[in-house]
């Protein structure tokens, strides 16, 4: 009897807390959207040419590489769960892109065909993804640490391939990606739009996508339902590696070369993927959220440029966004999985 009363009195604040959280998440989602809109409006009114169609299409094109990588990260977050400490994360994704770009550019510069070079770049990306998968799924290392270690291995490999040099590369395919246009939009912008559409279907409407949410959200229930949780989690890292390889091809095409400092993309990718979680009720990444956040970060950098605000601030703002999202979602997320 005493225990029942105690349980009930404990349940009341818990229920109240649950209601508060539900309201909180709604406020948060609307707040995030309002913040996006406000910042965009501020740039539109204060900077020259921000809302011109040329500038908007430029930003879509500029975010294509980051968009592909943000989807790679989002899939890892979905499959591994969004717990900040133990959940899925791929810190090696940007460094992996750098390595794949180095492989792609080196092969093209050495006279390899487009197909062989592209296959090698994507193969390299997937191989690194499988290394992450092995470390996380087989060895049971926390993804945060496993992918951090792999990031360093991969960054070292990139330096070995490139000797920290810019490697120029040009081919029919890279030319097409860099300069081609279709219906008034650049090929890169089209690639981002089509890739986003494909990912929206894969994440939200395909069987694999739905199972992936189950694996990330309730691994035990997923396992009980007969889903091979390990294979799905491993698959997310392999997919993230694929995204790195694919993004590397786009990057080399855009820059006519593989360059150093690709690893610096990590902060923006993390910010986009984590910010994307704010738009779902359960704070998990969604396709819409990922697209919106990627574009937001692209427009933020663009708006800063046009306002003559130093680019150094962009890194700072991305860092603050990550902190805010992690702090807010940790508070607002329902207890337990």
């Amino acid at each position: 009897m005493t225990m029942t009363i105690a349980a009930e009195t404990a349940a009341k604040p818990a229920r109240a807390r649950g209601a508060l959280r539900r309201q909180g998440t709604l406020v948060l989602r609307l707040g995030a959207l309002a913040m996006f809109a406000l910042i965009m409006a501020w740039f539109a009114f204060t900077t020259r040419g921000f809302v011109s169609p040329a500038n908007i299409f430029n930003v879509i094109e500029q975010t294509a590489v980051m968009g592909v990588l943000s989807f790679g990260m989002a899939v890892v977050l979905i499959g591994g769960g969004t717990d900040v400490q133990t959940g899925g994360i791929d810190l090696s994704i940007a460094a992996n892109t750098g390595l794949c770009a180095a492989v792609y550019a080196t092969l093209l510069a050495g006279g390899s065909g487009d197909l062989a070079a592209a296959a090698a770049a994507i193969g390299t990306g997937i191989a690194v993804g499988l290394l992450n998968a092995f470390a996380v799924v087989r060895l049971g290392i926390l993804p945060l640490l496993a992918t951090l270690a792999v990031m360093n291995i991969v960054a070292g490999l990139e330096l070995t391939v490139t000797e920290n040099q810019v490697i120029g590369a040009n081919s029919t395919v890279t030319q097409l990606i860099a300069t081609g246009r279709f219906l008034g939009l650049s090929v890169l912008a089209w690639i981002f739009i089509l890739f986003s559409a494909l990912m929206t279907w894969a994440i939200h409407y395909s069987r694999i996508g739905l199972r992936l949410y189950a694996v990330g959200g309730h691994p035990e229930a997923a396992r009980a339902a007969g889903i091979n949780v390990g294979a799905y989690v491993a698959g997310t890292y392999a997919f993230s590696g694929f995204c790195a390889g694919f993004a590397a091809i786009l990057l080399v095409a855009r820059l006519s070369a593989s360059t150093t400092a690709t690893g610096q993309l990590l902060l923006a990718i993390l910010a986009a993927a984590l910010l994307g979680t704010v738009f779902s009720r359960r704070f998990v990444p969604t396709a819409g959220g990922t697209i919106l956040s990627t574009l937001f970060i692209g427009f933020l950098a663009n708006g800063f440029q046009l306002s003559n605000v130093s680019y150094y601030w962009v890194n700072g703002v991305q860092g603050v966004l990550i902190l805010m999202v992690v702090a807010v979602t940790t508070f607002a997320k329902p207890q337990g999985k």
């Binding site: 040419g49 820059l255 360059t259 993309l265």
Partner: peptide
């Protein structure tokens, strides 16, 4: 003056040139 510093990042500089052209 619209002054843009790419912080040693080629990708950033390319984006900045593209942004400048649109301006």
């Amino acid at each position: 003056v619209i002054a843009l510093d790419a912080q040693s990042n080629d990708q950033t500089q390319v984006s900045q040139i593209q942004t400048l052209i649109a301006q």
